[in-house]
Amino acid sequence: MDTPRIPTRILFVAVLIGATTSSQAQSTRELDAALLQMSERGDLKDTGAPQVIQKPAQVRYELGAVVDVRTAQRSGLPVMALTPDGPAARIGFKVGDRLVSMNGVRLDGASPPAPLLEQALQRGEGRVVADVLRGSVPTKLSGAAGVVAVPAYRLEIGADAKGTCGFVTARAGTVPKTRNIFRADITTIDGRSTPLQSVNRHRLAVGRHVLVVQELIDTNRLSPSQLVQINKMKRFALAKAYKPLVVDVKPNMSYRIGARLLKDKLDTQSLRDNAYWEPVVWEEVAERCP
């Protein structure tokens, strides 16, 4: 089943009040700040040697809710708003819940709550297990957090760019289906959509990049009932059915991307959670960067 391509900018609602932003804008602001600092220090000079400003890509996890983290509260942190159809809403959070703990981190103590909540979200690595108070009733909630790809950036000043690139591709070579690896589609790279027309490979600067991948697993490897569950999940999740993959690109290397079918994750709940596959680099081959 075809699902819509992820938009060029991946927007998300942060857990901190008033912190809505875009991943691409975040990297742009950080790069602008780094350039300003170098300029103020007088570092931007033609020294004959390249100067490099870079930061690796990051994969972050978000709740999709506005939580009041202004002050610590003994009864837990109030949930003030939810992103419609966002991660928190799908997990089962309701406006008015008080968040007592998440992923083993207590949020009802005297410590400043904002860094604790951020720590709890990243600690789960995509999973959320939370204790909330709904009125006076303790309630346990669990599910999947939202995934945000914060792009890498690398800027070389005064450098010869030849030989400083690599490639990623989802179309080269014969995928090793005996290892349960199948075709995939790269839909975005560092927050930017790839061309809709077929592209054999994508040239990237050396460094860490975040790809977003759609699985194209052979349907004959799945039962009719499994396909029904997957199609339901994709209709509900849309672009959230895609998954991020971080690739560290080295000079003059090409990385072949695929989707691995996890045969021990084909139960109904795993299919509903989109846990039945993972994006992988299944082969690395030398390819000269012109």
Rank of each mutant, 00 (worst) to 15 (best):
V95W: 10
I189L: 04
A57C: 07
W277F: 15
Y61K: 07
C165H: 01
L155E: 07
D97I: 08
V247N: 09
S23K: 00
R260E: 15
S39M: 14
K177P: 00
I189V: 08
V212K: 00
R272T: 10
D97T: 12
E30R: 15
R272D: 10
P4L: 01
T83G: 06
V79C: 05
Q58P: 00
S22G: 11
K232M: 11
V246N: 04
V175M: 09
A170Y: 08
Q226P: 10
P7M: 00
L266W: 03
L63Y: 00
L99M: 05
S270M: 09
P87N: 08
V129L: 14
A145L: 13
I230N: 00
A275W: 09
G146M: 07
T20Y: 02
V206G: 06
L204F: 08
S101V: 03
V210M: 07
I53G: 03
T139I: 07
T174M: 14
L196Y: 00
K250C: 06
D273I: 01
R179D: 12
A259L: 13
N200R: 13
A88V: 06
L245G: 09
G163R: 05
V137T: 15
N274I: 10
V132K: 11
L216Y: 06
S223V: 01
V137K: 14
G258Q: 05
L266T: 04
V79I: 15
A65T: 06
V247W: 11
V210E: 04
N180I: 09
L262N: 12
Q73G: 10
L204R: 01
T139R: 11
R171W: 00
L266P: 05
A172I: 03
G76H: 03
D248L: 08
T164K: 14
T28W: 04
V280S: 04
P176G: 12
Y276M: 13
D264T: 12
Q122P: 05
N274T: 11
R203M: 08
P56D: 13
R201P: 00
A161Y: 10
S193E: 11
L107A: 05
P224M: 13
P195E: 05
C165R: 02
L107F: 02
E62D: 12
V246G: 02
G76V: 03
S193N: 11
A145R: 01
R127G: 03
G135R: 11
A88Y: 01
N220I: 05
P138Y: 06
E284M: 13
R235I: 06
I181A: 07
K263G: 08
P50E: 02
L31T: 03
V206A: 08
A184I: 04
P4C: 01
